[in-house]
Amino acid sequence: GNIFIKNLHPDIDNKALYDTFSVFGDILSSKIATDENGKSKGFGFVHFEEEGAAKEAIDALNGMLLNGQEIYVAP
């Protein structure tokens, strides 16, 4: 299952995104959108192997604080 994450703190990188979401299941890919200079655009995507893991991550993390910013997590 794919999920979309927005309002990410600029310091959150691909590894931090992966580490945050990997507790919910096996991740096939995770990516933070960046500009041409490699600076985070504040949103990203995680693709879980299983749909159930994606739903669990959405339920658990939507509205949670990550590096002091409330993140939005949705399908």
Rank of each mutant, 00 (worst) to 15 (best):
S22I: 09
A60P: 01
K39F: 15
L17S: 02
L8V: 12
P75R: 15
G42V: 02
P75V: 12
F45S: 01
I71F: 08
K39S: 11
D59N: 09
G52W: 10
N62Y: 12
G52S: 11
K31E: 01
E49N: 15
T20N: 05
N67V: 15
E50K: 14
N14M: 08
H9Q: 10
G68R: 13
S40F: 09
F21H: 03
I32A: 05
L65Q: 11
I71C: 08
I12G: 00
I3G: 00
I58D: 03
K31M: 04
D26H: 11
D59R: 15
I32H: 04
S22W: 08
F43T: 02
P10D: 12
K15L: 06
I58A: 10
K55E: 13
G38A: 12
Y72T: 05
Y18R: 13
N2Y: 00
L28Y: 06
A74S: 08
D19R: 09
I27N: 00
F45N: 03
N37M: 15
A74C: 15
I58H: 11
A54D: 05
D11V: 10
L66R: 09
D26V: 12
M64N: 08
I32L: 12
K41P: 02
F4C: 01
A33I: 05
E51G: 10
E50I: 10
D11E: 09
H47D: 02
E56A: 09
K6E: 02
H9P: 14
Y18T: 04
D19E: 15
S40W: 05
T20A: 14
A54N: 03
K31P: 00
F24Y: 05
M64I: 11
G38T: 07
Y18E: 04
G44W: 01
G25Y: 00
Q69P: 04
S29T: 02
D19C: 12
S22R: 10
Y72F: 10
N37P: 05
I58F: 07
N14E: 04
E51L: 11
S29I: 02
F21V: 09
K55P: 06
A53R: 10
K41A: 05
L66C: 13
N7K: 14
G42H: 14
D11K: 06
D13V: 05
D13R: 05
A16F: 05
S29L: 01
M64Q: 10
I5V: 09
G38E: 10
V23P: 05
L8E: 01
A54H: 05
G68I: 04
T20L: 05
K15Y: 06
H47I: 01
G68Y: 06
M64P: 03
I32Y: 01
I58K: 13
N14A: 10
